Lab assay of single mutants.
Amino acid sequence: TGYYDVLGVKPDASDNELKKAYRKMALKFHPDKNPDGAEQFKQISQAYEVLSDEKKRQIYDQ
């Protein structure tokens, strides 16, 4: 599964769309709200870390 799929956004998503999707998913799977969501929360955080950084995103998109 790709990072875009993890966040539920298209590859041409804007920074604002990425942030909005990340916040929505992070709230849904945060371990405090969803004890079984810890692994998914890590994936969401990693996806956002890469896609929100312009240089990392360019490398990922290659």
Score class of each variant (00 low, 15 high):
30 H>G: 07
33 K>A: 09
18 L>W: 00
17 E>I: 06
9 V>E: 00
12 D>E: 06
58 Q>W: 12
2 G>F: 15
60 Y>Q: 05
10 K>D: 08
31 P>C: 11
35 P>Q: 07
46 Q>H: 12
25 M>A: 09
29 F>P: 00
55 K>T: 12
21 A>W: 05
60 Y>L: 02
2 G>I: 10
42 K>D: 06
13 A>L: 01
12 D>C: 15
43 Q>I: 15
57 R>C: 05
17 E>Q: 08
4 Y>H: 03
31 P>G: 07
6 V>A: 04
35 P>E: 05
7 L>A: 00
55 K>L: 08
54 E>W: 15
34 N>P: 02
17 E>H: 03
27 L>W: 11
3 Y>H: 03
42 K>H: 09
19 K>L: 15
46 Q>T: 10
31 P>T: 09
45 S>F: 11
48 Y>I: 02
16 N>C: 15
51 L>T: 04
6 V>G: 01
51 L>G: 02
43 Q>R: 13
14 S>V: 01
13 A>M: 00
29 F>Y: 13
21 A>L: 05
34 N>E: 03
60 Y>R: 02
49 E>Q: 11
30 H>C: 13
34 N>Y: 08
48 Y>Q: 02
20 K>W: 10
6 V>I: 15
29 F>H: 05
28 K>I: 11
34 N>F: 08
6 V>N: 01
50 V>F: 09
5 D>E: 13
37 G>Q: 07
26 A>L: 15
21 A>D: 00
24 K>R: 13
41 F>S: 02
58 Q>R: 14
15 D>M: 15
33 K>M: 12
37 G>N: 14
8 G>C: 11
10 K>R: 13
15 D>A: 15
34 N>V: 07
33 K>T: 14
19 K>Y: 15
3 Y>F: 11
5 D>H: 10
33 K>E: 05
48 Y>T: 01
42 K>R: 13
26 A>I: 14
11 P>Q: 09
43 Q>V: 13
41 F>E: 02
13 A>K: 00
21 A>G: 05
43 Q>P: 02
38 A>T: 06
29 F>I: 04
6 V>K: 03
24 K>A: 12
60 Y>F: 03
28 K>M: 10
56 K>N: 07
54 E>Y: 14
43 Q>N: 08
20 K>N: 12
11 P>A: 08
22 Y>H: 01
46 Q>M: 13
40 Q>H: 12
17 E>M: 06
54 E>S: 15
11 P>R: 11
18 L>A: 01
51 L>M: 02
30 H>F: 06
40 Q>M: 15
8 G>P: 00
57 R>S: 03
3 Y>N: 05
57 R>G: 02
27 L>G: 07
58 Q>V: 10
37 G>V: 06
32 D>G: 08
20 K>C: 14
49 E>A: 13
20 K>Y: 09
26 A>P: 00
5 D>S: 10
28 K>C: 12
45 S>N: 11
52 S>H: 06
17 E>P: 00
